[in-house]
């Protein structure tokens, strides 16, 4: 049985490797490995050409992390710290609308969750320290907040609503890493089902009306806990008539 094919939104960035310096279509391997580890097959969707025709070939889609979304999408002025990527905004918003219309199983990670809120007609906080008075949702550059001995900076708990998709996947509580300075204010048509208990920052949004539509504010792909990726793959397999028991973990 074939692996469910999972599209992953990707970056167009200047990268340096082995003494080379090139503009590249790219994605951290953590995302690719996460999808492969739970039985999926990852392909990368580049942001250069906003079109949704690629949706028809996929069994599921992950909207990955990245820069801030242009606040013009929800009618707000740009905060001084907001760094937008207009090309990704345009292509990902179109792709997400098409994915939802096709009921393609969908997982949003960090920026991806924020794209969900914006597509759902909601709004974002543009700079969390202005709202909650601290910057503990943004781990220091290049650190792993979940590593043994790491400081609590960038690591926090999430409490999860009963009777939610997130609760069925993760239970009532999770400890997560955190790499963001923006967050969901109003989730729009989606429902918030997980929060950071210290400051009520929204950490999970979902919509049970779809076969699978879940967004998380943290980065599960950088951890050993890949349950939300596994849930996406299960939904993708179910939608496409594939047999989940055939997947190697």
């Amino acid at each position: 049985m074939r692996r469910p094919l999972i599209g992953m939104t990707s970056y167009a960035e200047q990268v340096q490797y082995n003494g080379n310096d090139v503009m590249a279509g790219m994605l951290p391997m953590t995302y690719v490995r996460a999808v492969h580890a739970v039985g999926g097959r990852a392909v990368l969707i580049t942001p250069d050409d906003p079109g949704e025709d690629v949706i028809e070939s996929l069994d599921g889609i992950v909207f990955c992390g990245g820069n801030d979304i242009d606040p013009a999408y929800w009618g707000a002025e740009r905060h001084p710290t907001t760094e937008v990527d207009k090309e990704r905004d345009e292509s990902e918003i179109r792709l997400m609308r098409a994915a939802l219309a096709a009921d393609l199983p969908l997982l949003g990670v960090c920026r991806g969750l924020q794209v969900m809120a914006v597509v759902g007609g909601g709004t974002l906080h543009q700079h969390l320290p202005d709202v909650i008075g601290h910057d503990r949702h943004r781990a220091a550059k290049g650190t792993d907040p979940l590593a043994a001995g790491a400081s609590a900076y960038g690591r926090h708990d999430v409490i999860i609503e009963h009777d939610s998709i997130a609760h069925r996947i993760l239970g009532a509580h999770a400890t997560v890493n955190s790499f963001h300075h923006q967050a969901v204010d109003d989730p729009g048509s989606f429902t918030a089902t997980g929060w950071c208990p210290d400051d009520r920052v929204i950490e999970i949004i979902e919509d049970p009306a779809y076969s699978f539509a879940l967004g998380v504010q943290w980065h599960p792909e950088r951890t050993a806990d890949l349950r939300v990726f596994a849930a996406l793959i299960e939904a993708a397999a179910r939608r496409s008539g594939l047999q989940p028991e055939a997947f190697a973990a």
Partner: peptide, 19 residues
């Protein structure tokens, strides 16, 4: 690969010229 704030992060990529 090194990009943005990240240094030597395992990354999958292709020169954007191909895309």
């Amino acid at each position: 690969a090194t990009w943005g704030v990240w240094r030597d992060l395992p990354t999958t990529f292709v020169p954007h010229d191909y895309v």
